[in-house]
Write a protein that binds this DNA or RNA. Structure first.
Length: 256
DNA sequence: ATGGCTACGATCCGTAGA
């Protein structure tokens, strides 16, 4: 079973990339973030024709998440039940016995911003949500754009980024609290190339200089992680014309 | 050099992303 996550930065603009990618990537489940479109504008038909049904939690202009699956999807749940939020950032569904959670973590903007406070509150809520999810399900995967680079090796220039949003102490502590629930960072279960990133700034030739961050992640529960056979970042779509600034991350699991 | 793209929805610039 192959699970993937991709922040597409507008599904409207990126639909052709997603459709092309689904043909070659051979994934069973794809979690999308930053749809940036209202639910009524979601391209169900084009994705259905590609073999994927979608569970969606969208809104106009900002945010928005979806789970695409070519296997039957059950028990779709929108948002975090104990965290009232206008922003559509969370959706979950069960596929082949795996509880798949797709999340678009807040950016935070800067440490001085109200958005940073919101991010920390949201991270608290996500911890509680995952704690509850892990009590209800054995096999759980949390996929998405975390907007956190967990370690300095996930940052192209740790010195320049020191203390900034996406790498700050409190954000990394929140990541560690998720890890402390028993979740495993699938990417780090395997030997990986140096300077592996999943996001590159559109500006400053970020991608060409590999000036990026690894902020898109797949975490797996203790019952699921041992079945992970591989985890890779697919940089190919980032090389296309008018790309998303994020690359997809794929994890391959030895489960039915 | 603190900017530099990109997307959106509003206008011909502001907000947001990371």
């Amino acid at each position: 079973m192959r699970l993937a996550t991709w922040n597409v930065n507008s599904l409207n603009v990126r639909l052709a990339h997603v459709l092309d990618w689904l043909v070659t990537a051979d994934v069973d489940v794809l979690c999308l973030q930053e749809l940036k479109l209202a639910n009524e504008k979601y391209p169900h038909d084009a994705l259905q024709a590609a073999g994927y049904t979608s569970a969606i939690n969208g809104q106009k202009t900002y945010n928005g998440v979806a789970i695409l699956s070519r296997l039957p999807m059950a028990d779709v749940a929108l948002d975090m039940p104990d965290y009232a939020d206008e922003q559509k950032r969370v959706i979950a569904a069960t596929v082949a016995g795996v509880r798949v959670v797709c999340a678009y973590f807040p950016n935070g903007q800067s440490l001085e911003s109200d958005k940073y406070r919101y991010k920390l509150d949201w991270l608290d809520a996500m911890h509680g949500y995952m704690e509850a999810t892990l009590k209800q399900h054995q096999r759980v995967a949390l996929l998405g754009d975390y907007n956190i680079a967990p370690e300095d090796r996930d940052v192209h220039d740790p010195k320049a980024w020191e203390g900034q949003v996406l790498v700050s102490e409190r954000e990394r502590a929140a990541w560690q609290r998720l890890i402390a629930l028993g979740l495993a960072d699938c990417y780090r279960l395997f030997e990986q190339p140096e300077k592996s990133f999943s996001w590159w700034d559109y500006r400053m030739l970020g991608f060409r200089r590999n000036a990026g961050l690894r902020i898109d992640h797949i975490l797996a529960s203790p019952a699921l992680a041992p079945d992970c056979r591989a985890c890779v970042i697919d940089k190919a779509p980032r090389k296309l014309e008018k790309p998303s600034d994020h690359a997809p991350v794929i994890a391959d699991f030895a489960v039915a």
